[in-house]
Design a protein around this nucleic acid. Sequence first.
RNA 1: GGGAUCUUAGCUCAGCUGGUUCAGAGCAUCUCGUUUACACCGAGAGGGUCGGGGGUUCGAAUCCCUCAGGUCCCACCA
Length: 896
Amino acid sequence: MEISTKYDPKDIEGKWYDYWLEHKFFASKKDESKEPFTIVIPPPNVTGVLHMGHILNNTIQDILIRKARMEGKNACWVPGTDHASIATEAKVVRMLREKGIKKSDIGREKFLEYAWEWKEKYGGIILKQLQKLGASCDWDRTAFTMDEKRSEAVIDMFIHLYEKGDVYRGLRIVNWDPEAKTVLSKEEVIYKDLNSKLYFVKYKVVETGELLTIATTRPETILGDTAICINPKDERYTHLHGKTAIVPIANREVPIILDEYVDMEFGTGCLKVTPAHDENDYNLGKKHNLEVIDILNDDGTLNEKAGFFVGEDRFVVRKKIAKQLEELGHIEKIEDYKNQVGTSERTGAVIEPKLSEQWFLAMKKLCEPALKNVMNDAIQFHPPSFKNMYKSWVENIQDWNISRQLWWGHRIPAYYLPSGEFVVAKSFEEAYAKALTINPSLKKEELKQDEDVLDTWASSWLWPISLFDKDELDYYYPTSVLVTGFDIIFFWVMRMIIAGYELKNEKPFEHVYFTGMVRDKLRRKMSKSLGNSPDVFKLMDKYGTDGMRYGIMASSAAGNDIIFDTEVPKSQKQEDVDAFALTEPDSKLCETGRNFSNKIWNAFRLIKSWEVDENLPYQSETAVQWFRAKMNKTLAEVEKQYTQFRLSEAISNVRALIWDEFCSNYLEMIKPDYDQEAKKSLPIDKETLATTLAFFDELMRLLHPFMPFITEEVWQNLTPRKAKESICIASYPKAEAFDNQIISEAESIFEIVQNINNIRNEKQLKKSLELDLFFNAKDTDLYTQKFASTIQKLGKVGKISPVQASTLEPSKTISFVVKDAEFFIPLELEIDVEEEKAKILKEIEYQKGFLNSVEKKLSNERFVNNAPPQVIEVERKKKADAEANIKVLEESLGSL
RNA sequence: GGGAUCUUAGCUCAGCUGGUUCAGAGCAUCUCGUUUACACCGAGAGGGUCGGGGGUUCGAAUCCCUCAGGUCCCACCA
């Protein structure tokens, strides 16, 4: 069978994924005899597409779940999508607008039809994309935050919290998104630095006729002013206490009130108070019993209450009003001013604070177990430093505004009577029955359900609970680990913890693994708008999915940001971004991953090419013993790294084991010689081949969680497999006790080989030139028996024999020292003896310096008294080694 | 303003409980090599005062203080 020298992942990946699906290897059923290992996917937006953040996140989940599955646990990874209320609704609105349809014209029902249609069309694309990534989810469990089961859970939770008294309606200043025409929670508001203007507006004081200057960035809101506020301690304005002022344009008389809230240092020390459009002003208004004039419509235009500029957008009005104020002589000056302006996370629109009646959830009490159980590590954060961030969030939590003025979402199960009273119930029928107890003559059509829907996170927070049927829940819950970005600690992680303790009195997950943000070379977060996110499918095509998985994992310590070394646009100018979009993404990390795949592929080719000679004796005992020990040592290290979620270290370790130890060392050690005449390799003995195949098998199983496709392909072809077998359900390798002695012996052998190679390089010797090696050491067998063939093969050495230095011609011999043994290589060329002497002297000097420092340590009484015995033991050994080394070097010097 | 976190080789980063000569890996650079699995390869080399200063300790990249710089989160912003 001819096997290509290049590994081509293209057909292989799809083939095996289909195979896995066909045999339902990823399906999980409740089974009390098996330990569950559960992960719930952070549900991506239903209409989203796969980007680098998802790749990182889901690769980690896949690694953890695949390993657990191989370990014989009942691995259950539940996939699904989020309805993403505001984001999806915004997309549907835009789509309809392009068709010339306005949301308000078609009404709720028709709009939802369009939305569901949209969801059916584009929803779940991302799940297909996850399959390309190799995600081993139990696809039969695929859930959606707005499907029947999840909806029921959301409504039940609302009713539960309402009946407990935690959910209430309240009139508050809220963050209003005039584009989406909905309220947002304060976490959905992103503050951006903007260059704006600070307008100094003059107000006339009624009693004195003087002009009082007030600084504002939002002059249009003067139409809603209902007071002027000064600090009672401000001596500049003492004479104005109890006076009134006239709001320009509106010509409204408003009181001048006193409050220490006002910062005397800022602006002029006078504050205009607009209770309907600023939270602080609202609080002042409440305190001082001020009138509240709401001048804005839902879409950000001014309403009749403003009295002027009715129907015009707030930003248009800002300019117009500034101009008019100027013409009226009411502007003292306008300064450039940098301030932060709240914008909507989803629509980008500038947020308007607005007085509005909304549903809230009281959070303080609910948070108590959520804080406690993170701080005491009942739920473990990785890395733990995120506990601090979490703590500050939870401690400063405010009531959660859970209502949204949208249609795409879970409609609030509150029903209003014409009287304004309301009932909360699971269905209209129940609500009607309840309503009748308030008003026995109520007609059905008089009972109206609340128009609002719930915040998206009000369904996501139930995700780990709502994914499982009642009879499964106690088995799968709490889940094992949550893998997510730290940017949604507050939105999601905290709320899931709260819901978990509220509903189940149990944590939702044992561990939380926080990934960093994927950034470009300029350390900018990858985003669509910057155009700096590489096309993940191009990456998969170019490097293979395994290669890309390797690339992203190799550099992703938990919580650390990943600098994804992709080409980026030179600037944010549109033409640069466009030009970038046309170039192919590139990444060194993925390239390493692809190269690694190829290395494995070629090791596989090599082993497959060997022919067995049944009569040959077992030839590779030493190599086998060494590699077995080395592998077990690495297995133990990797296992530890898994438990600490140090996956990038684990994958590097596995790579080094396979590439450096197995391919570069072990295979070279056992590789049969080449028969020059027959132009092919000599045969191998059957025992060595069988063991090597077993090693390779084990290595593939070790690597499988990281690189599932190539490992399956190789594993399937290594030895004949039965139908329905797969590496993804094969056993995960377990570390066994290993012999440290042989590892350190082999290390000195490799050091000898390295010295020989070094000499070859320095003396520019041809690789084909066979060298002879003489040595002077106590343990002769180590070099002439046990590791003789290793030295011969790896160092391209002929004879190896013990010898006295003095018997060799110094001017034609090069020497080196490894541990306490001296080695000599006679060469056919003159050696610069002085140069050799200098080299040895330098080495002696170094060793003596080292010895000196060790002796100093050992003669220090405080060290000997305080250091642990094993540390002292190590120092003693170091001393002995150095002394032996120096002795050998000095002998060597003497012989020159 | 409050808090977190980082600063180690040209670049990206490991370095875990202070303890081996602990100063490391990958990439990049340079030299050499096409022979027999792999040039997506192999053999080598160079490269760091661990941000600066101080302290604790027998011992510090690691702990503490301080200064400088970066990043992130929160709060305020008329």
